[in-house]
Amino acid sequence: MRFVDEATITVRSGKGGNGCVAFRRERFLPKGGPSGGDGGKGGDIIFKGSSKLLTLYDFRLKRLYEAKNGQPGMGSDCYGKAADDLVIELPVGTLLYEVFEDGSEKLVADVTEDGTEIAICKGGKGGRGNIHFKSSTNQTPRYAEDGFSGEEKRIRLQLKIIADVGLLGLPNAGKSTFISRVSAAKPKIAAYPFTTLTPNLGVLDDDFGTKLVIADIPGLIEGASEGHGLGHQFLKHVERTRFLVHILSAEDVGEDDPFAGFKMLDEELRLFDDSLAEKTQIRVVNKIDLLTPERLEEIRQDAIDEGLEIHFISALEGDGVEDLVKLMWKRFKEMSQEEEDE
């Protein structure tokens, strides 16, 4: 399945059923009064959050969603059946924008939890049957109401992955190797840039059933905030994470400015959205298996000299990974507790 995080669709609720014109014609009531029932209500359009879905791909294939119309009223005071609502499932983390004719948009809903339901279009009311129009001056009304039309709206869907941790880094930093080592996720891994073309999700569980969701955001490059590389397409998925794990490959640690890679991506986050640059970060240098012990010690000393807290790992060999995961759990639980206190 392809990862698609934006789609625009049209939704249309059902029309109400027409009211009925009918009269009683029982054996002993040859000229009975009106008996036409009301039409049934049209179906609503309801969006429902589902944690089982991870993409908006289906909405690229089908662009029009219509609820059914209510049934018309019938004689003998029988009302038409209301139509069933049309429930459309969306991935959790989807934003719904109503698109108006002039091209402007309005945010109408944010699906943040599994099972959340949002009624977007109300079905039309059923028309009244002729039993409602009998009066002292008109004992045999021969008219009834038509059913009321439903609503039609254009809706733009935008998915922003909800994850606890966002993995950031330059292309080929080893993020996919890390997520494959610590979780059951199986992303494509290769030694060339932009192996990861879509966000990958990994899930960690502790002994108490608590889940820690990690999103591997595709490689960012300088100019990502302006749309260079793949960055602009996926930077929005960083917004809903609690904190970031920023991974820099040991291959990108230079002599003159060892941690320029960290600074560059921090600036890209700031240019895209100031709030992203303020997120809590865990900084990591990966691929230490490529370094000599002497060079590794030099980089450690550089971090101390610059006052940076940096964790050194080899996602391939597993060195330092367990300690990093423990720190991620620690940060996650601290931030969860802060949110509960607030």
Rank of each mutant, 00 (worst) to 15 (best):
Thr241Lys: 00
Gly80Val: 04
Met74Cys: 14
Glu340Gly: 01
Cys121Asn: 10
Val87Cys: 08
Leu157Pro: 04
Glu268Ala: 08
Lys81Leu: 11
Ala67Gln: 06
Val4Ile: 15
Gly127Lys: 09
Asp38Met: 02
Cys78Met: 08
Val285Ser: 01
Gly32Ile: 08
Gly19Ser: 04
Lys330Met: 10
Phe208Gln: 15
Ala163Ile: 12
Gly43Cys: 05
Ile45Lys: 01
Asp146Arg: 11
Ile247Met: 15
Lys52Leu: 05
Met328Trp: 09
Phe234Arg: 05
Gly123Gln: 03
Phe243Pro: 13
Cys78Trp: 02
Asp5Met: 06
Phe148Met: 08
Gly42Trp: 06
Asn18Arg: 08
Lys279Tyr: 01
Leu86Tyr: 05
Thr177Cys: 01
Phe312Leu: 08
Glu105Asn: 07
Lys279Ile: 00
Asn286Ile: 05
Gly124Cys: 06
Thr137Ile: 10
Gly219Gln: 01
Ala82Thr: 11
Ala83Lys: 04
Thr210Arg: 15
Val99Asn: 07
Ser225Lys: 03
Leu230Val: 10
Thr292Val: 10
Gly93Tyr: 04
Met1Asp: 13
Ala173Leu: 11
Leu29Glu: 13
Gly43Thr: 09
Gly70Gln: 00
Leu235Val: 13
Lys263Gly: 07
Ile118Asp: 09
Ser135Arg: 08
Phe243Ala: 03
Leu64His: 13
Phe23Met: 06
Asp164Trp: 06
Asn18Asp: 15
Asp274Trp: 02
Gly231Asn: 06
Ile155Leu: 14
Pro187Asn: 13
Glu117Val: 10
Asp302Glu: 13
Thr195Leu: 01
Lys287Cys: 06
Phe272His: 12
Ser76Pro: 00
Lys211Thr: 10
Ala190Cys: 07
Gly19His: 05
Asp85Cys: 02
Ile45Glu: 04
Gly166Asn: 14
Ile118Tyr: 10
Gly126Trp: 02
Gly150Tyr: 03
Ser35Gln: 14
Ile304Leu: 15
Arg156Gly: 01
Tyr65Ser: 09
Gly36Gln: 03
Gly307Cys: 08
Asp289Asn: 03
Leu170Tyr: 01
Cys78His: 05
Leu296Gly: 11
Thr196Arg: 08
Leu316Lys: 15
Gln233Asp: 12
Glu309Arg: 15
Val285Gly: 08
Leu90Asp: 05
Val284Trp: 00
Phe23Val: 03
Glu309Pro: 04
Gln301Met: 09
